[in-house]
Every structure is written in C-alpha cells, then in structure tokens.
Design a protein around this nucleic acid. Structure first.
Lengths: 350, 350
DNA sequence: TTGAAAGCGCTAACAA
DNA sequence: TTGTTAGCGCTTTCAA
C-alpha cells in the first residue's frame, strides 16, 4: 500500500544506495548495470517502506503524464457514453494510461468547449479523445489541434482530425438482410427526420439492400418522424394502414421500434407472426426488455472508444501517424443482435 | 490558447520582470505588492504569449493536484453511473477540480480494487469518490483510508468512511402515498428477491405508509421475483390473479413495472383505468416511454454525486471533517416523478 | 557497478 | 515594490 510520504530518496537511504540506483532498478532501465544483490535489496526496501512513485514528479521530468483527456457529451443521458468510456478506459489501462474526464453539453458554446480542452492541456494530458453522443459532424475547438486527438462517433468538418464512426449504411444493410433472409419481400422503413448522417446513410443502406435483392428500393415504403417512441408509434400507424402493408419493418432506432410495437398492438397485428421488426442501437434497456425481444443492430460504442484510444496512444508513442488517419473517418461495423422479433412472413402475406 | 512551450520564465523575460512577479500577479497572491502597471504588463504578455500554467509543476510544488479520483462500477450498464459522474463533474469544476475516472466491476477482486485506488494515489489525487451501481454494503480497499474519501450509493461495512445513499424507505412511502392520495385502498407491492438494502427498506416503507393510512400493512399483498422485466411480469401475473386483486400497484423498480404493464395487457386490465402503477428508479428510457407514462420515484444519483464531491472538497480544503460524517450514511430524498400511470380507482373496485 | 548533480516548471520564504 | 533562490520528487547525463 502506497505511503505518500515515502520517496525514492527514503528508499535510497534505507537501502544504503543512491537515488540513481533506486530509480534504475524500479524502472528497469535497460542500460543500467546493477548487481542482482543490490537490485534485490532495493526492491525489498521499496516494498517494505510501501513506496509508490509520484507520477506528478515523473511526468514533470519526462514530459509524459500517461493521462488521456476525454471530453464526452451528455454523459448521463444514455449508456452510450458509458460504453465509449468503458472501451477507452480498458484500452488505456491496458497500456498504462488513465483517463481524465470532462463532461460537456452538445449545446455548449465554443468558448466553453475551448475551456474544457484548455483544462486538459494545462494538466498536460498526452492526448485527447473527443466523444459525441451520436454520429454527427462537429466543429472543433481550435486549441484541440495542439496535441494528438481522436474524435469518437463524429467527423470533423475541417477534416483535419482522426475520427472513428459507425458503419450506418452497413448496419442498415445487415438489418434489412435479416428480414430478407427470413423471406420477407414487402419491407418498410421507419426513418428519423433529423438531418444527421445516420438518417441519410441508413436510408441508403435500406434502399441498396433491397435493390441488390432484386426488389425496388426506391419504391419501398418509408415513413419518417422524430426518432422517439412517439414518433415511431405515429409512423408505424401510418405504415400499418397502407394498402401495401409490409410484413417486415426496419426501424431507425430501438425507441421508434418500441413505438411500432405499441402501434402494432393497437391495430391488432402480432409481432413477429404478422409483422417482423428490426431496430437499431441495441439499447439493452429497451431491446432486451420488449416482448418479444427486439432483434436490432448494435452501435459499436465500446469498440469506437477502444479503437480511438489505441490509435491515440500509438500516435503519442510515435508508433503511428494520425495525420494519415485524419484523411477520412475510420468506419466500424455494426453487428446484428438477434432476439425474437423476426420470423418467416405469414404464408398468405409473403 | 495555451502554448505548452511557454513557461512562467518566458513571460518574465518578455515582460522584463522576475518569475516571482509573474507568479504573484497570475495567482493573485494576496500579500504581493505590485504596481498596477506591472500587473497589467505581466497579464498582457502572458496573454500575448499564450501562456498556460503547468498544473503538474504547480501540483508538485503545492502538494495539491486539484484532481479527484472517481472509481465507478459498471459505467456502461445504465445511465445511473453517468448521472453520478455528471453530478460529481459539475460540482468539481465549480470549485476548480477535475475528475480522474477509473471503471471497475462490481465483481472485481479485492486486489484489483486496491490497484485501482493505487493508481489514483500515485497520481496524487486530492481525494477519492467511490461509487457503486446500486445501494449496497461494500468492503473497501484498505489503501482507500489513506486519503479523504466518500462513498456514493453504498455504505461501508466497517462504517469508517463518509457515504451518501438514497432514502429507500422514504421513496417507497412517497410512491405508496401517491396511490393513497388517488384514493386507492387495495395496494400491492411487487418486490425484489435480492438481499440488498432497497429490498428491505422499500418493503418497510410500503408497510408503514399503509399502516399510517389506517390500513393493514402486514396484510397487504406482496409478490417477489427477480427485479427484471420478466420477474415483474411473473409477479404481476400472480398479483392480478388474486381474489383480493389490488387497484394500485407499487413496483420495486421501473423494469418490474414494465413487466407488470405486459401482464396487465395480457390479462386484459387497463392501466391506469383498472390498475394504477407506480415504479421506482426513473429510468427515463423506460418510464417516460411506456404507455401510459410511468409515474415513478427518482433515485438521486446526480445529487449524490454532487453532494459527495462537495463534502470531499470541503474535507480537502479543511472546511469540514469527514470523520463526523462517517458515523452514519447521509440520506438523500427520492422525489416522485409524476406521469400518467395513476388515476382514481374505478368506483366499483375502490 | 554505482553515484553526483542538473533540471523539469512552479511557489514561497526571504532578501533587497 | 520587486528579485533571488531553494526545493517539490523524479530521471538522466556524466563521471567515477
């Protein structure tokens, strides 16, 4: 157990050697030539006194803190931010780094964002992870460019910083494919109305997947509303009242799917027997708890956090060059999470 | 914008003064007697050069890092941890501190917990917040006692560390009272089966609230299952088939309430017309998105995070004594969040 | 194989 | 009113 009052000097005195020697053995310095006995003695006394290094002093001297700054949006709203943090934390500690976290609001002013980064800079973090709550384009605080940085779940408008984002289109394809594989031919899409990459890319994925299956993507039914439970309910109601009612429904996210479940129940359509549903996001609280359990596509938040951290540390340690990564965002797969909301279409309806 | 290569010395040279003077004006040292002109000149040059203090060097010298360590369990599972972090972060930055976060697992071994605290100690954080995911009793890593610490959402078995927990019994009373106020007299409770404080305290609150309303708390129907959606469903099914079927139902948490919604729908009982329901936790993803919206009791995670941080900083700054707080946990209220799941009991059933 | 000493950037006691 | 200097705990160059 670390005793804050014990320094390298105390260990040196107690072991009857110099501080240099202590430093050398405790840090396993490669070129140090120290006898095994001294080595042992030093280690033993350090242990006995409960010595723990003062990372501040080390950092001041080596110009390396071993700390990564993470500025994260809306940490408290969903578990998404938590997954990013978890991925980053695990990747960081695996390589001996720790995380300093600063929460920010998606609506924060430019000055306040700058101040957040500033605080991290003053603490001399070795690099910065900048995470947003959902995939979008951001304008970055200018002081961010002064040290290695990676964006998580967003793309820089200027295109000057490395970033990692989910494969929205691929995720949509996977979702639609799961419906196609079950035999569905009449497939509808409940889309979001916000102007974000996910809205455009998931729609593209939806259409392309249908086209490639020999269906007419452009003609497939799409209903758009706010991407919340209520929006999903309203959109689903419209969708289910169409004369060409689909047998398979792809929803922009799990919340909209939850609304679709309610709409289906009210209209008297049973899931999955009369309507198969697939969502997006894998918000476990919803997806796993709906009845029947919602098959959905997971966003790789943990993976994005871990990936960004790995690359950031690589850059810090001179093992990689972030500028080449900055050219375009790195795209991570969105895997399908299978539950019980998809089945073969009812014979008469297929 | 901070330029890492600029130090206090550079500012001193550029302004034609000594480093002492620079340090004094930039830190607004009380006893320093410096002419307004010099003061202005120093500030201007510091600004011009883009000087930002090196907090590491400051910390090494002053023995104060201005950093708080937060070890949090299961950061990625629910938004609960996020709320604690948010409360802590906002309270911390309001007083000039930042947060170092380490994620841990509820199932982590004692050694790994010690290692987490150790990492924080080596970084010389000024104090530590130790947060668990749900209210329970914990055995703490022993090295935690070497610096100021506060537990969030848990109580120390040894009873030696200050802690803050939710008022489980009070929250249950508030929930039951909301049912009583609506006119319900036959009220049931869907309880959890885990042996945690919440299970015992919410049951006590339930019984006491009924007793005080002149009803028989001991005789009131209680069904217990795992505190998940499925458990709620199963327990609710039993509850709703009783001959003395209640008109008001208090659920251990929102997930169990979600299960109760499904059970009610299957049995053909409408909420809130034939059954009023109140939950616990205010997991927004669930409570706000059920139909009808679930009236529930909120856990004060944000408040606990903020309270713990305030007290921790008070202790660090010598403004408070944590040992007096350690005597017994501080209890924070759980407020009712009203939505649409409660109404007056059906006349024939009241 | 080991040790002395400079210096990372800052604060604060002391001197002028 | 301002400046000189020691030292926070460590790493690392250089010398022995």
């Amino acid at each position: 157990m670390t005793n804050k009052s014990i320094g390298i000097k105390d260990v040196a005195v107690a072991a009857g050697v110099s501080v240099t020697t202590v430093s050398h053995v405790l840090n396993d310095v490669a070129y140090a030539r120290i006898s095994p006995e001294t080595r042992e003695k030093v280690k033993a006394t350090a242990e006995r006194l409960g010595y723990g290094p003062n990372r501040l002093a080390q950092a001041l001297r080596t110009q390396r803190t071993g700390m990564l700054g993470l500025v994260s949006e809306e940490i408290a709203t969903t578990p998404h931010a938590g997954r990013i943090i978890l991925g980053a934390d695990e990747a960081a500690r695996a390589r001996g780094y720790n995380l300093m976290i600063i929460n920010t609001s998606g609506a924060a002013s430019d000055e306040s964002r700058q101040a957040d980064v500033e605080a991290l800079l003053e603490r001399r973090v070795d690099g910065i992870l900048y995470a947003t709550m959902y995939h979008r384009e951001v304008t970055l605080p200018e002081n961010l460019s002064s040290i290695p940085a990676v964006l998580v779940d967003s793309e820089s408008l200027a295109g000057s910083v490395a970033s990692v984002v989910p494969d929205e289109e691929g995720g949509a394809r996977v979702a639609v494919q799961s419906l196609l594989d079950a035999g569905h031919r009449r497939i509808g899409f409940l889309n979001n109305t916000d102007d974000v990459p996910a809205t455009r890319d998931r729609l593209r994925g939806f259409r392309n997947a249908l086209d490639e299956a020999g269906l007419d993507g452009a003609a497939a039914p799409v209903e758009s509303e706010l991407s919340e439970v209520l929006g999903g309910y309203v959109a689903a109601l419209r969708m289910l009242k169409r004369k060409d009612r689909p047998t398979g429904l792809f929803c922009y996210n799990d919340r909209m799917a939850m609304g679709a479940y309610r709409a289906a129940a009210e209209v008297g359509i049973s899931i999955p027997n009369e309507l198969s549903v697939v969502g997006f996001d894998d918000q476990e609280l919803i997806a796993a708890n709906l009845y029947p359990g919602l098959t959905t596509v997971a966003l790789p938040h943990y993976e994005m956090g871990a990936w960004a951290t790995e690359r950031l540390i690589d850059a810090i340690e001179g093992k990689a060059d972030l500028t080449v990564l900055a050219a375009k965002p790195t795209i991570l797969q969105c895997p399908l999470v299978t539950r019980e909301s998809i089945t073969n279409p009812h014979p008469g309806l297929s």
